[in-house]
Simulated assay, not measured.
Amino acid sequence: MNLSIKEVAEKFNITPYTLRYYEREGLIPSVQRKDNGRRVYTDVDLGWLQIVSCMKATGMSISYIKNYVELCTNGKDTLEERRKIMCKQKEIINEEIKKYTDLLELVDMKLDYYDEKISKDELKKIITEKKK
């Protein structure tokens, strides 16, 4: 598959500027160009973009992603180091999940409090209206 920069930008919901930036930073190792200089993205390039997008979504910095991509391009000798990077990122994600789980528990407690108060107030209102 050969896609234009516009098509790839739409597919990954990013701007063409971002794609050019990723290429300059070495996050997409070897984007081909037509004779007229326009970029042509292949399935391999889309694979790299998928990896970059995934890592960015997990909060990994551009420099960290760049290091990872460089390791990938260096072949199988870097498998252990790449695995360490993924393990570290997994720890970071798990910390974020814990943080949001704690926040969700707090929100749930507040909702329970409001539900209880609203129910008691509604009950009082009904009792007061019946007495009239």
Rank of each mutant, 00 (worst) to 15 (best):
Ile93Arg: 06
Val69His: 10
Gly75Ala: 08
Lys90Gln: 11
Ile92Ser: 15
Asn67Met: 07
Asp77Leu: 11
Asn74Tyr: 07
Glu80His: 10
Ile65His: 05
Tyr68Arg: 06
Val69Leu: 02
Asp77Met: 10
Gly75Pro: 00
Ile92Arg: 14
Asn94Gln: 13
Glu91Asp: 09
Ile65Lys: 04
Glu81Arg: 03
Ile93Trp: 08
Cys87Arg: 07
Leu79Lys: 03
Ile92Ala: 14
Cys72Pro: 00
Ile97Lys: 13
Lys76Pro: 00
Thr78Val: 06
Thr73Gly: 03
Ile92Val: 15
Glu96Ala: 04
Ile85Trp: 04
Glu95Asn: 13
Lys99Thr: 15
Gln89Pro: 13
Thr73Phe: 08
Ile93Val: 15
Glu91Trp: 06
Ile97Asn: 07
Glu95Phe: 09
Asn94Ala: 08
Thr73Lys: 14
Ile97Tyr: 05
Leu71Phe: 12
Glu70Met: 12
Met86Phe: 08
Ile93Thr: 12
Val69Asp: 00
Leu79Thr: 03
Asp77Trp: 05
Ile65Arg: 02
Lys66Tyr: 03
Val69Thr: 03
Ile85Phe: 12
Asn67Arg: 13
Ile93Gln: 04
Thr73Gln: 15
Ile85Thr: 04
Met86Tyr: 01
Tyr68Glu: 01
Ile65Gly: 01
Arg82Asp: 10
Ile93Gly: 02
Leu71Gln: 07
Lys66Thr: 10
Thr78Arg: 01
Glu70His: 10
Thr78Asn: 05
Glu80Val: 11
Asn74Pro: 00
Leu71Asn: 01
Cys87Met: 15
Leu71Glu: 03
Cys72His: 01
Gln89Val: 05
Cys87Pro: 00
Glu81Lys: 01
Arg83Pro: 00
Glu95Thr: 07
Asn67Leu: 07
Met86Lys: 01
